[in-house]
Design a binder for these strands. Structure first.
Lengths: 271, 271
DNA sequence: CAGTGGTCTAGACCACATC
DNA sequence: ATGTGGTCTAGACCACTGG
């Protein structure tokens, strides 16, 4: 129950009969925080820390706003604002009347394919089938090492897999994972798992993908890829490079996908 | 000053000496709103309406939270939440100590190129030069008409332009605009304007781009495009189709860009 | 019914910008 | 010093879920 830690409250005495003398707490705040961090941000940080340590598992509910407020000795509104931001980052999910839950890649189709931007040209919903082709242990080359923020030559796992839409092979992915986080990864283990790849990472290795960056380019199909995707050699394909991050902006996946845009496209919303 | 309109407040009497009799206003709320809309959403709607009618111009500040609260007879917190959402949608911009401002495509480089996802491969910031090649009046073909939600055969303007990065032609755009909204558009007028295309639309035609959807595909360069972009015929290019929307989710631009990924890529953030 | 998140209020104070 | 947005509180009530 020593959750309270050392919160620094910038708000002073406030209303009521006024607790005089408390003002000095405020000056302490300024001493400790040269840049000023609002209370709800500090609480957000504490919540993230507890999520990171696995105190609350994906799919589970976290304590209610009232309980957290009591635990941290702040008002419900302050906890609320912290949770609001985490919900905005898709790290928590609010469900009115039920509670606040830790986001997961295992429940609905839309949560399983949250990061998949490939869509049918006709706009209909369709989720792909995934087939893992092979898994290799590889020492990280320089570019992959840089992306994953590990050292060149460190152990990695490299998976190749195909995504099929209605049976048609559409995406060929090469996925590189840092070996240190995915010890014991085998093709058999993955094949035995029901669900998405990120769901697998989450439940089997405790690695949660929170956000990702992608770089899209146009390339010509090489002979190998052409065969897998059943297109002519030289056919224009999308090259989609992704770095996915977990807590603390730590990169935990580097991926390169090659995608036909025969009957699908890469969808994006701009705001 | 008849801004107040007919707000329906779901919150009842509340604290203080309690204004008894006000309870019935609540039941009215339920009669009028079968689906229930929170007060701050209603206020958000009113703000959007005023933005739409041009009461507050891009770049200008809107009234302070306190003034809006008084005008709408709600608390500051309620106005605040309405503004929060509009700021989240990049329709308003908050500046602490200064006020809340209507977003514009004319001020900073980053606001001018808010929707541009093309980035240098080495990660450095770089903004392109734009050259308008030609402007034609065209009757909308079926597919464009569908995208713009106009009728086939309606008048449109079709612009072609090139984006150059450090002198290198990188993107060739074909931009279709509904003629009804852009009367008086000429190449000369555009060439005389300093700034981005959306800045031009905003200041010269009062059309504000708020959000957009893009579909990205890989295609082979046709002879014409190849010449403009200085690549070989058949070189893989990104095809980026965009529909841009203004208030009320009204589509006001259909665009197809062809982009070399020699030294640039299409960047995207996934959350 | 009780419990949870969602809305709303009123008031105080802090941080920032400007005069 | 004043005004603006930003934070925080305390308390009330609404909407939704599930026993």
């Amino acid at each position: 129950m020593s959750d309270v830690a050392t919160l620094v409250n910038p708000a002073i005495g406030s209303s009521a009969k006024s607790v005089s003398g408390v003002h000095d707490a405020a000056s302490l705040a300024h001493v400790g925080t040269p840049s000023f961090q609002p209370l709800y941000q500090q609480i957000k940080g504490l919540l993230v820390k507890q999520l990171e340590t696995g105190e609350w598992q994906p799919g589970e509910s976290i304590p209610s706003e009232m309980e957290l407020a009591a635990r941290f000795s702040v008002s419900q509104g302050t906890v609320r604002k912290a949770i609001d931001e985490l919900a905005g980052e898709n790290i928590l999910i609010r469900r009115q009347g039920k509670g606040t839950f830790v986001a997961t890649h295992t429940e609905t189709k839309s949560s399983m394919f949250r990061f998949l931007r490939v869509r049918r040209n006709d706009g209909q919903d369709e989720y792909p089938e995934s087939e893992l082709l092979d898994v290799k242990r590889v020492r990280a080359p320089a570019d992959v090492a840089r992306a994953l923020e590990i050292s060149t030559g460190d152990a990695t796992m490299v998976l190749r897999r195909v995504l099929r839409y209605g049976g048609m092979p559409t995406v060929l992915d090469e996925i590189t994972l840092p070996g240190a986080l995915f010890k014991g990864f085998t093709k058999e283990r993955f094949d035995a798992y029901e669900g998405s790849m990120y769901g697998f990472f989450e439940t089997e290795f405790g690695v949660r993908m929170l956000r990702a960056q992608e770089q899209v380019r146009a390339v010509a199909a090489d002979p190998n890829t052409a065969e897998v995707l059943r297109v002519g050699i030289g056919t224009p394909l999308l090259s989609v490079e992704r770095i996915a991050y977990t807590y603390g902006d730590k990169p935990v996946e580097f991926r390169r996908g090659l995608c036909t845009t025969r009957s699908h496209h890469y969808a994006n919303e701009l705001n």
